[in-house]
């Protein structure tokens, strides 16, 4: 079984909303997941990991527990967190939770000149690269020269190994659905009881 990126993005939006984010940030989450998955990076597991933590920890986001990658990403993208202006300059972001999710927000900033340091870090399982979970101190750094090539789009599907993650996101998405009542069942869509003719 596999999932289209379109339905993955739609699921991510609903899951982020279900976990407690405002719709606008949820849309950013959907975008981030699709951007990562299209480049062969584990965006869906990353969002799954972050939202699970976020929902289980009463929506905490502070320096001790790590900054929220969606809020931080949006703040960078919006220019509220300024980007380094000179070659090799750095701006520290502090400890960010699931920093892989920051990557899409930084992509193409200033023509691709801004990169994110902090995607390699140590976790319980040992050193990883671009792991979907965990905390890392992150920095924005300005390149000395324009990058030769942006990360290419290589994938158009979410594959079977993401089934668990799709299920978790689906559970969070479910929180956005209103429980049915007999009244809403009949009135909500407006149809009658029978459609035979």
């Amino acid at each position: 079984m596999s999932w289209s990126l379109g339905e993955t993005g739609a699921l991510a939006i609903k899951a982020a909303r279900g976990a407690g984010f405002a719709w606008g940030l949820a849309e950013d989450a959907g975008f981030a997941v699709v951007w990562l998955q299209a480049r062969g990076l584990p965006g869906a597991p990353a969002l799954c990991s972050y939202l699970s933590w976020y929902a289980a920890n009463n929506h905490r986001q502070d320096e001790q527990t790590g900054r929220c990658p969606l809020l931080t990403g949006a703040a960078i993208s919006d220019g509220v967190i300024s980007t380094p202006q000179h070659a090799q300059d750095e701006i520290g972001l502090g400890l960010v939770r699931t920093p892989l999710l920051l990557l899409p927000f930084i992509s193409n900033l200033d023509g691709g000149m801004i990169i994110l340091d902090g995607l390699s870090w140590q976790n319980d399982a040992g050193p990883t690269h671009a792991a979907p979970a965990g905390l890392a101190p992150c920095r924005l750094r300005r390149l000395a020269a324009p990058p030769k090539q942006a990360l290419p789009v290589t994938h158009s599907r979410l594959e079977t190994e993401c089934a668990g993650c799709v299920e978790t996101l689906g559970r969070l998405a479910h929180r956005t659905y209103a429980p049915a009542t007999p009244e809403s069942r009949l009135a909500g869509a407006g149809a009658g009881l029978t459609d035979n003719d």
Partner: peptide, 9 residues
């Protein structure tokens, strides 16, 4: 928007 994330959409 940082102060009012509800208006981001």
């Amino acid at each position: 928007l940082l102060a009012h994330p509800e208006h981001r959409h």
